[in-house]
Design a protein around this nucleic acid. Sequence first.
DNA 1: ATAGCTGCAAACGGTTTGCCTCACA
DNA 2: TGTGAGGCAAACCGTTTGCAGCTAT
Lengths: 148, 148
Amino acid sequence: MRMTPQRQLVLDAVHELEHATPEQICAHVQRGAPAVNITTIYRTLDLLEGLELVRHTHLGHGAPSYSVRPHEHVHLVCHDCGEITEIPPEELDGLAGALRARRGFELDPTHLALSGRCAPCSHIDEGSHIDEGSHIDEGRQADEEDDR
Amino acid sequence: MRMTPQRQLVLDAVHELEHATPEQICAHVQRGAPAVNITTIYRTLDLLEGLELVRHTHLGHGAPSYSVRPHEHVHLVCHDCGEITEIPPEELDGLAGALRARRGFELDPTHLALSGRCAPCSHIDEGSHIDEGSHIDEGRQADEEDDR
DNA sequence: ATAGCTGCAAACGGTTTGCCTCACA
DNA sequence: TGTGAGGCAAACCGTTTGCAGCTAT
């Protein structure tokens, strides 16, 4: 395997962006090297994943999110506002131990996100819609077209 | 809203199939009513989900899986062989309580699957590849093209 | 010369959209 | 008669494939 410029660029992009979809990585790479094709992004991500340099996480809907390998954590996705929170994998140790003991299942908590509602969204609902969307900013919204 | 024949058929299919993708539901419905279009399946699933009659779970890759609402459980997906195991949501009560207490996050454990390796796959690996793919049957495999 | 990497275009699976028609309250 | 449901075709996003040309060995 050769570490070509394209491959280095993709790896750099994954490092810089943290939690980026292939499309976002592509856009980032193309800012410096417009000729790079999205096909190459996909092929390279596959390759880097095989080398255990990066890994991807499914956040629920749409495209997976890539991050660099040593940087592992569990993702909590709010399905109201789309906010993503990271927590250390150790918080799932109890569950992981139980699953291993009870059914021999080796949990890999970083590969799939956990879904639910973040604190602000839970509170909004308790107080019967105080101010719809108050803490939701432009960046990424999950209103109607939420998930799926 | 009217409970049209198509809608009833989709709801029936979700009941009968349990954990079916929209495409599978469509195929099932079309066995009895070939004219029903996949568009209708999607629209109806959306609708039934809004009515809280069904819900979908992301099993990681590809299409989500729909099941009837009261029948809830957590899914464990093996990313070696693709096997799906169901466990009662109560097994995550400890984790859910911790997330709620520590960060106000209301976990919805049925919406996203948990990923890892099932017991047989873990054992294969411990014994350094005794018989590659021994317990894996034709139905659904996850070898190379596994996830993503 | 030959392998491997890349770009391009086309296909793909899953899903959504627009539009036109139809049935029914 | 007007509203909403369904069918169809086309668009869409995310991803993969085939193939041809290039490049470093």
